[in-house]
């Protein structure tokens, strides 16, 4: 498979996953902003936490400085000036899909194209909730169509690699953005305010119903952290993402010279092993925030190595 095509598919997977995550986070935030919330917490604070979570707070501060009315919600969802906004992410995914048309089915292209067509100026006027719902459904439909209309070949493995690396990164950011809330709860009794926060975190990761199935009884910080980080069956947990990434990477690089594929394979195997043999208690003891930061650094290194060793490497020897 062409290196450029493999890289584009990988990024298509990343952008689609990112779009779905941002849409879901925005929907949860929106719900929180219309429902009851603690009196000292205003709407802007909720959004600001989100802006911070997806790593564009500096850019937002700059844009908000020149455009007084720009709310962080608009910046995050509809602003074409924010390269990380939902609208921009969809536009990029669609640009890649257009470039990749001969590698994806007509059905997959049309689904992404429909999302793009729904992301024009009129998106904001139809309302945030309606738009984020469109994106969530559209991404889910796209992935479903991909599974059912495209060959299960190297290209599909790269798309899934992109998807899971993005998801691993996103879940770790979601937990990290609320880590300060998780910490005191270890000792605290569960008050109504706490429960409300736990629900919001679980919803941010589409984990609410999974949590209920997994654990009887009340929502506790340690349990939430365990589900989102270490559960091997919850499809958004760090452990699940790393295992899936390792599996798809192995399939994607089946034909790649061993020396080039090996560093990432080894790192992923190690990460998988570590996540499988640690506990929430260990992580909390040595520092949740530090654990998450290190996780993000390692995921990012995997990304860089794949890019350099697989996508951008000039083959040294002749066939």
């Amino acid at each position: 498979m062409l290196s450029r095509v493999a890289e584009n598919l990988y990024w298509l997977g990343r952008y689609l996953e990112r779009a779905e995550n941002v849409a879901r986070l925005a929907a949860v935030n929106y719900r929180a902003s219309v429902e009851e919330r603690s009196p000292d917490e205003d709407e802007a604070v909720l959004w600001d936490a989100l802006v911070q979570a997806i790593g564009s707070d500096a850019a937002y501060a700059e844009a908000a400085g020149s455009e007084r009315d720009l709310s962080s919600g608009e910046w995050l969802i509809f602003s074409a000036r924010n390269p990380g906004s939902l609208v921009s992410t969809i536009t990029r995914a669609r640009g890649l899909a257009r470039e990749l048309r001969e590698h994806i089915s007509r059905e997959v292209f049309e689904e992404i194209n429909l999302l793009y067509l729904a992301s024009d100026e009129s998106a904001a006027s139809r309302g945030l909730r309606s738009y984020t719902a469109t994106v969530q459904r559209g991404v889910a439909a796209t992935m479903g169509l991909y599974d059912n209309t495209v060959l299960f070949d190297e290209g599909g493995e790269w798309l899934r690699c992109g998807m899971f690396i993005e998801r691993a990164d996103m879940t770790s950011r979601i937990i990290d953005a609320k880590y300060y809330m998780l910490l005191p709860s270890l000792a605290d009794v569960d008050g109504p305010l706490d429960r409300y926060h736990w629900l919001a975190i679980l919803r941010s990761a589409s984990a609410h119903e999974a949590f209920r199935k997994r654990y009887r009884g009340s929502i506790r910080g340690t349990r939430v952290a365990e589900l989102l980080m270490l559960d091997s069956a919850f499809p958004r947990s760090l452990r699940f993402c790393v295992s899936a990434l390792e599996r798809h990477y192995k399939l994607a690089t089946a034909g790649t010279p061993r020396m080039r594929a090996l560093p990432v394979a080894r790192e992923l195997a190690l990460m998988d092993l570590e996540l499988g043999s640690t506990s929430t208690g260990d992580i909390m003891t040595s520092g949740l925030h530090e654990f998450l930061r290190e996780f993000q650094v390692r995921v990012n290194r995997v990304h860089t190595t794949i890019t350099d060793e697989i996508f951008h490497a000039v083959p040294a020897s002749m066939p």
Binding site: M1, L2, S3, R4, A6, E154, A252, T253, G255, T256, P257, I310, F311, V314, P315, S317, M318, P319
Partner: peptide, 17 residues
């Protein structure tokens, strides 16, 4: 995406040329 070696044209693929 293409490269020429010894008057032959190759694709740059993930698995090699």
């Amino acid at each position: 995406d293409l490269v020429v070696h010894d008057q032959r044209v190759y694709l740059r693929a993930t698995t090699g040329l």
